[in-house]
Nucleic acid binder design. Structure first.
Lengths: 256, 256
DNA sequence: CAGATTTATCGTCAATCTGACAACAACCTC
DNA sequence: GAGGTTGTTGTCAGATTGACGATAAATCTG
């Protein structure tokens, strides 16, 4: 039925690289960490054109002999000076952005990744600017998204990253990857509140979360002046049934 | 700490395409459709090496001026001879597979997509083999996955596609995209059973699903010999709280 | 055409889960 | 040690769940 075998329909047997303009394969990183009840993202300020001085996600090229996730891990290690491999940093593929004109210079296909850094909640890991970046730092995610002035399509990528994290926290214990290996229920609840922009009831949160975690038996050395809290460890158990993010006001549950 | 700015760390300002081996950008398609209570996937049998005669996902190259999802839509239209654009075919990006040696010939980065075709449940859309494929046809997904003998990493991709669909059906009405625009609750339940390999109770399914759908007021002309069923239309409402897939036996909910 | 059969939908019931909130115990600061 | 703060457990009414039975509406069989 389709005789017009367009050049794009040919397969590798007849593929000649010179038929196609070359493609740059990069990774972009959405790196999250929580401090003081706020979800932060690592951003760099661009030093060169295009989008000079605009905020952008950190990233870099995928080397000829590495996969995208390996490249993401390498970039993350270079940027955070973190002894990656010791801390269980969560790193997963997010999505790939392929619009032909997303970079005005040439065709850049970017595989975005989501990275979650552990934090005790009071300080953020140091990060270093990459080679094309003037500076690097942490920015409150929800503020950045409301301001929405980022280089390339990075605002979209950041939004997708947040949505992925928020969604996955409903049926997983990923939120624990934003905390030290041992943590209290209040710390975990703080992470949920930071990401979801909610204020969850402490009692009910404890009731629903406890069976999914492993109680170490130890107690936190009272930090803030209250009763000592039990220290938990995350299991890789899926939460079933899911913890549901409170319905956003205005979206009816049962339209009649 | 890292002074050795590796070539891969350089940014576009200093990027020279000839520094990198060229990359082929392709799309792979995981196309699903349901008949007779079975979830099927469209596969082609490869005509050339490597993996000659093995089953593979349909796919093709991304053209120089199209995005990955556009390429996926084009390939889907070419393959199904379907008047895409009329039927609301669900098409979404799944994940990107970038392992350097996933294709022995050269570096092929593939953006996999998930496509859901509407079907009345009794027949499947015709599909045509692509240029490098000897034949194309529908195969039962769960059987194929159990057999697990596919070209390249396509078994992984197919598994990921199934997991995406199964997961999304918990909190969305995507399952309706595998049915005609108007459908009965039993048809919808059949889709759930086909994908999840479950047997859901009809009464409870009706109770939970009804408020998420739009009742057209019309009734199905009794096809199989029973009471006529109400015809529904899908809304894009998220299901809240989610419909939970029954726990797989052997995975305890509350380990104590 | 009169059952028998199949199918869709609604109803019931006990068990569980949920959200709201109170009660209590353990710790810090002054 | 008094007072404030924090973590955990308990209570209670309302909603949700899974299992299953009842009813109504159509087709199939003879």
């Amino acid at each position: 039925m389709t005789f017009d075998a367009t050049s794009a329909k040919k397969f590798l047997e007849s593929y000649n690289p010179r038929d196609y303009p070359s493609i740059a394969l990069t990774v972009d990183l959405v790196v999250f960490a929580v401090t003081d009840g706020v979800l932060n993202v690592a951003l760099v300020r661009r030093g060169g054109h295009p989008f000079k001085d605009a905020l952008a996600l950190p990233g870099g090229f995928v080397g000829p002999e590495e996969s995208a996730i390996q490249a993401a891990g390498r970039e993350l290690a270079e940027e955070t000076t973190l002894d990656l491999g010791r801390l269980p940093v969560h790193l997963e593929q997010l999505a790939t952005y392929t619009s032909p004109d997303r970079d005005p210079r040439m065709r850049v296909v970017s595989v975005a990744h989501l990275a979650l850094l552990a934090s005790d909640g009071t300080s953020l890991p140091k990060i270093a600017a990459g080679s094309d970046a003037a500076s690097a730092g942490w920015y409150p995610v929800h503020d950045v998204l409301r301001g929405k002035e980022m280089a390339f399509d990075h605002a979209t990528i950041l939004g997708d990253g947040l949505a992925r994290l928020a969604g996955k926290m409903e049926y997983t214990t990923v939120a624990a990857r934003l905390l030290p290996e041992e943590f209290t229920l209040t710390q975990l609840r703080t992470v949920y509140d930071a990401v979801w922009e909610t204020t969850m009831a402490a009692g009910n949160f404890t009731r629903k979360m406890t069976p999914r975690l492993h109680d170490t038996g130890r107690k936190s050395r009272g930090g803030a002046g209250g009763a000592p809290a039990a220290l938990f460890t995350a299991t890789d158990l899926h939460i079933h049934p899911p913890l549901t993010k409170p319905q956003a006001p205005g979206s009816p549950v049962t339209p009649e």
